[in-house]
Design a protein around this nucleic acid. Structure first.
Length: 858
RNA sequence: GGAUUCUUAGCUCAGUUGGUUAGAGCAUCUGCCUUACAAGCAGGAGGUCGUAGGUUCGAGUCCCACAGAGUCCACCA
């Protein structure tokens, strides 16, 4: 028997390992079931699961468990990401604490340290998956540095290289001076920070005149190789072709005319530093300007900056500005707020830096993606739909992807050099060839993840052939461009298919006040704390049913706590059922009562709705449908009714049947507690709920004609309760009662209202006392209940008031409805059922009005 | 500048291709320890759906404008 109270700690202990050991998480490549594949977005191997992950993996486990129960051969494939820069920067930091420098110990030893780190922390993630109850198939667990992934990466890289879709180029890229590596545009976060426009005098050669050149980055003047004005700018156009002297360095550079100079902006004159600004780089290309690199890879000034050689860029700025002031070359400083890029990982200010990097040429890949997203059978369906637009938008304005990183932790670029020869291959082409030092962007391997993990680049392709393309991907909108977008074009290029059929995009978890959860704000919440406090089941249900698809979720512990209450409710409903059904071994529906038929009908309608919404991944609606059905209909309604028919074997069967269905539908959301309850059931269709059958709509157990009757009965019971309360009617008050639906509902109503036989009024009392009556009259059901007692003038007044109030409400409803039904536009255009329902209601309301009018007259 | 989301009860949020009197949780008020559950039960109160127009027999829902909040992309000498 179940304990009185739900104890999540007790319930969630041990179950996970049992499921795992029994092989329930495993797919079966030899099965004749239809495969259903979900690839887990691989978290950083040394990372920690935060609430966002908990949400994300719950959204996947729900689908995995649902599909498994519904007859699919489910593969949910786990894995982790080496997370090049994120892991490397952590290991660098750790070594630094021990006084070790990455470059001193060299590449090999450093990589050993990374592997040690990975092994040390890699297990944490797996523990957290287990805490959350994820039914992952560990047989096929992958890592982005294992051979499945590395083989695929090499294969794709070499092929793209041979096709000319990967090239090496000297370009301005985003440089992280702390990690000393290039970054892609996606890895740069822009923040608004205070800064200044420094207005500097650039003297025109051979004159006493100068141009006022405004810049936010005066230290880059060492790299200036021109000054640009707009050729349409009347103020300056005559100066084009003349020369100016770059202050401090005294370099003579041309004044050029270029559209890049904005007439409206600043002074209209802009200095051109081709090696340190992406726009200037373009200008430089157009005008054949020299590119002078003035910083090193740590963003310190180099020998080109004279006495500033070795200065940090900010230090240099400060000193240079002072020097300009002293030499009367600084006109003024204008304080502004401007947005500046920072490295996503190290938070270092990004330096636009001229260097040689590898790029993926994007135009063709993007064009293909856009084309496929226009083909109904081949496209990825986004949930919610609008993200398709976001992806297309991205593809339309895509720039080439910088994929080389000056890091060591990652997959090394499979390119070899000898003299001026260059070759792409995994192994050295021969004597004297040297491999490229750089590794690939971690997202390059992630982009191949949906097919690399399934063995696309391996000899054995059975998994790939059976489980690819995958069916469902769930992830947050924050990595739409990093990952989803790149998986789409890479998969299409190499498998000729989109990597997944459905893509569910969720939002971010926020703190209760709507701010982001972050370490710096100190408002982060650990999933494990919530699991300990309320259980994984409550956390999963809360997270997955509390927001509309694609929107952010404000984490509210109070709501999590009421989810716990909901589970406690389910627990107790199960407890009641198990206590009362005895040891039945067969379901018997031969002697169903009205209330049995009613709940069976409601249940089957719920199954229908739940399945429909599960297919749409609309878990919010599934959640509220289950919540309402379980709490309002099953617990508050049916269980109370069942207490009076509990010896009827059909009622027992109904209780068990509905409860079983409920916990099965809940199982994908709350796997632990539903398994606990399932194991206690006297009739089961499998040894574990995990492998039981998901409920199906059963027409044979639908009795639509009982719905109206039972809803009327419930409505009437409520009416009587209100009347009893309003008139302060005591338990032993004498009454008389009659109703239209034979003894079946009469008994039920009397029981529900605690109308006992000994309180039935005798004729004497009927004659002596006055009465308050509660009446009900509809097509399917009418009833009259009178309470006899010494009705005071006060009571009469009260009753009259409430009757008048009721009359007013009814009259306004009737007139509204009559107006509606006399509107030909409505009658002709609205759905027939709806109009019919309106007519029914009008009739019922009219009946009720007659009842009330009669009472008021008497 | 482009895209996009949001604005509904005191708070946090639902509200399906337009269709009765707009729902839930929490909070609040009243009455109940009724043997599944007081972490509960039975009831109550609380909303001119951001503002202003339009389409329609009918608008929280569709269209236009405006106001406010957020996010993404581009720009940012």
């Amino acid at each position: 028997m179940l304990e009185t109270k739900y104890n999540h700690l007790e319930v969630e202990r041990d179950k996970y390992d049992k499921w795992k050991d029994n092989g329930y998480f495993k797919c079966d490549p030899n099965s004749d079931k239809e495969p259903f594949t979900i690839i887990l977005p691989p978290p950083n191997v040394t990372g920690k699961l935060h609430l966002g992950h908990a949400w994300d993996i719950s959204l996947q486990d729900i689908v995995a468990r649902y599909k498994r129960m519904d007859g699919y051969d489910v593969l949910w494939l786990p894995g982790t990401d080496h997370a090049a820069i994120a892991t490397e920067s952590k290991v660098v930091k750790k070594l630094k604490k021990e006084g070790i420098n990455k470059y001193e110990i060299g590449r090999k030893k450093f990589l050993d340290a990374c592997w040690d780190w990975t092994r040390e922390y890699g297990g944490n993630i797996r523990k957290e998956w287990a805490n959350m109850g994820c039914s992952l198939d560990y047989t096929y667990e992958r890592f982005t540095l294992d051979e499945w992934s590395v083989n695929a990466v090499n294969k794709v890289f070499i092929d793209l290289f041979n096709k000319g879709l990967i090239y090496k180029g000297k370009r301005i890229i985003n440089w992280d001076p702390e990690a000393k590596t290039a970054l892609s545009n996606e890895e740069v976060n822009y923040k608004d920070i205070p800064g200044a426009f420094y207005h500097i005098k650039y003297f025109i050669e051979g004159t006493e005149d100068y141009l006022d050149v405004a810049t936010t980055r005066p230290e880059t003047l060492f790299g200036d190789t021109a000054v640009a004005v707009n050729p349409k700018d009347d103020r300056y156009k005559d100066l084009i072709g003349k020369k100016v002297i770059v202050p401090i360095v005294n370099r003579i550079v041309p004044i050029i005319g270029d559209e890049h100079a904005d007439i409206e902006k600043g002074t209209g004159v802009v200095k051109i530093t081709p090696a340190h600004d992406p726009n200037d780089f373009e200008v430089g290309n157009r005008h054949n300007l020299e590119r002078i690199v003035i910083m090193d890879e740590t963003a310190h000034m180099n020998e080109k900056t004279g006495k500033y050689n070795g200065y940090d860029r900010f230090e240099c700025r400060e000193n240079l500005v002072n020097e300009l002031k002293e030499k009367d070359l600084l006109i003024r400083i204008e304080e502004i707020t401007h947005s500046v890029g920072f490295s996503e990982r190290t938070d270092a200010m990004v330096e636009p830096y001229l260097s040689e990097q590898w790029f993926v040429k994007m135009d063709k890949l993007c064009e293909d993606l856009i084309k496929v997203q226009g083909i109904k059978e081949e496209k990825v369906d986004f949930f919610p739909k609008r993200y398709n637009k976001t992806i297309i938008q991205k593809a339309k304005e895509c720039y080439d992807w910088c994929i080389s990183r000056q890091l060591w932790w990652g997959i090394r670029i499979p390119v070899w050099y000898k003299d001026d020869q260059i070759k792409a291959s995994v192994k050295s082409p021969g004597e004297g060839w040297v491999q490229d030092k750089d590794v690939l962007d971690t997202w390059f391997s992630s982009a191949l993840w949906p097919f690399s993990t399934l063995g696309w680049a391996m000899e054995d392709k059975t998994l790939f052939e059976r489980y690819y393309p995958t069916n469902y991907l769930s992830t947050g909108y924050d990595i739409l461009f990093f990952w989803v977008f790149r998986m789409m074009f890479q998969s299409y290029e190499y498998t000729n298919k989109m990597p997944f059929k459905d893509c569910f995009i969720h939002g971010l978890i926020r703190a209760k006040d709507g701010r982001k959860m972050s370490k710096s704000l100190g408002n982060g919440i650990e999933p494990i704390d919530m699991v300990n406090k309320y259980g994984a089941d409550a956390l999963r249900f809360y997270l997955t049913t509390s927001s509309a698809p694609g929107l952010d979720l404000r984490f509210d512990e109070d709501k999590l706590s009421s989810t716990w209450n909901f589970i406690n409710k389910i627990w107790n409903a199960s407890r009641y059922t198990l206590m009362n059904i005895g040891d039945i071994n067969e379901l018997d529906f031969n002697n169903l009562t009205f209330s049995d038929k009613w709940i069976l009908t409601k249940f089957n309608n719920t199954v229908k709705q739940v399945r429909k919404n599960m297919e749409k991944y609309d878990f919010q609606n599934v959640g509220s449908e289950l919540y309402d059905f379980i709490w309002s209909d099953f617990c508050d309604g049916y269980i109370e009714f069942s207490k009076f028919d509990i010896n009827n074997s059909s009622t027992k069967s109904t209780l068990l049947y509905v409860l079983t269905g409920i916990i099965k539908m809940l199982h994908p959301f709350m796997p632990f507690v539903t398994e606990e309850i399932y194991q206690k059931l006297p009739i089961k269709d499998s040894e574990s709920i995990m492998i039981s059958n998901y409920p199906k709509y059963d027409k044979k157990l639908v009795f639509n004609d009982t719905i109206d009757l039972m809803e009327s009965v419930r409505d009437y019971i409520t009416k009587v309760r209100i009347a009893k309360k309003d008139n302060n009617i005591k338990k032993d008050c004498k009454y008389s009662f009659r109703c239209s639906e034979e003894s079946k509902v009469e008994n039920l109503i009397c029981n529900m209202l605690k109308l006992t036989k000994e309180n039935i009024a005798y004729q004497k009392e009927i004659d002596t006392f006055e009465s308050i009556s509660v009446d009900y009259d509809t097509k399917v059901f009418n009833a009259n209940l009178k309470f006899f007692f010494e009705v005071s003038e006060d009571d009469k007044e009260k009753e009259k008031e409430s009757l008048l109030k009721e009359k007013m409400v009814l009259e306004s409803q009737i007139s509204r409805r009559e107006k509606l039904l006399s509107n030909q536009g409505y009658v002709n255009n609205a759905p027939k059922e709806l109009v019919e329902e309106e007519r029914n209601k009008l009739e019922n309301e009219k009946r009720q009005l007659i009842v009330i009018n009669n009472k008021l007259e008497s």
